[in-house]
């Protein structure tokens, strides 16, 4: 990521987040429009920054975990805007943008220039790209689950508050968590498999301990369990939402492990 461009993009995302939260509180048409504008502007700057970074590196900007997170953020924002435009789910940004901001704040720090030579291969790019697309899908899975639980609480509690008015129907939210799970899971699976295969070719063994790989396997098991429960046992609603949150917590640990613990993914 290009450091001189990433900062304006992050500032843009922060502005957009502030406006999105303001819209959640005080539903003002203008505030929403400004929020969308800020998001699009920040995303455009972010796009340029990614291109500049790719040109600098002469490779996809996925070589370090921080670069990869930045790409994931880029995908998340794109998908967020698309969902909002298509479904009219205008409060989505108020839930997604805080995550975007947290992730992108981390990417403003400096990072290693590129991959270690031992890793350079087409497969590694696909491994990282798939894992990041999967991660983006699970961000929406998590957000859908949070919104589901909030709305369910309001409806069971019978005392309509702000969220009752702002959030869509339970069924819509449950469908969102299911679809994002069904979409994210294959990406995560193939991404993990490619990683394991690559580890074997690069280091001779697919199973040597790596903190990031370990937590991502935990997340994968949780998501696999949820998907199986949904498909076979009719899991849905609150239970599916709890699993989505636990799965996402595992993914956060995965990123944390990659960023802060020594290992093959570490910086």
């Amino acid at each position: 990521m290009h450091p001189s461009l990433i900062n304006p993009a992050v500032v843009g995302y922060i502005c957009a987040m502030g406006l999105a939260l303001a819209y959640l509180v005080q539903r003002h048409e203008l505030v929403h429009r400004l929020s969308v504008l800020a998001t699009l502007a920040a995303w455009a700057v972010h796009t340029v920054a990614l291109i500049v970074r790719a040109v600098e590196l002469g490779a996809p900007p996925l070589g370090s975990l921080l670069d990869a997170i930045s790409v994931a953020v880029w995908v998340i924002v794109l998908v967020e805007v698309m969902i909002e435009q298509r479904s009219g789910l205008r409060v989505l940004s108020a839930f997604v943008l805080p995550i975007v901001v947290l992730l992108s704040l981390k990417t403003t720090t400096s990072r290693p220039a590129n991959l270690a030579p031992v890793l350079a291969s087409a497969w590694i790019w696909i491994h990282i790209a798939l894992a990041m697309v999967g991660f983006a899908a699970f961000v929406f899975n998590f957000v859908g689950a949070i919104m589901y639980l909030l709305q369910e609480r309001q409806l069971k509690g019978k005392r309509p508050g702000a969220f009752y008015y702002r959030l869509p129907a339970l069924e819509t939210l449950d469908r969102l968590t299911f679809r994002t799970l069904a979409l994210g899971f294959p990406f995560l699976t193939v991404g993990l498999l490619l990683g394991a295969i690559w580890a074997r070719t690069a280091w001779g063994s697919a199973l040597t301990f790596d903190p990031l790989a370990f937590f991502s396997l935990v997340a994968w098991i949780i998501y696999a369990g949820t998907l199986a429960g949904r498909a076979a046992a009719g899991w849905h609603g609150r239970r599916a939402a709890y699993f989505a949150i636990v799965g996402f917590a595992a993914l956060v640990l995965t990123l944390g492990a990659g960023l802060f613990l020594p290992g093959r993914h570490g910086s």
Binding site: Q151, L155, Y164, L167, P168, A169, L170, E171, T172, R175
Partner: peptide, 9 residues
């Protein structure tokens, strides 16, 4: 309206 907050349509 409550029904619409439970069911998607």
């Amino acid at each position: 309206e409550l029904a619409k907050k439970i069911f998607a349509g």
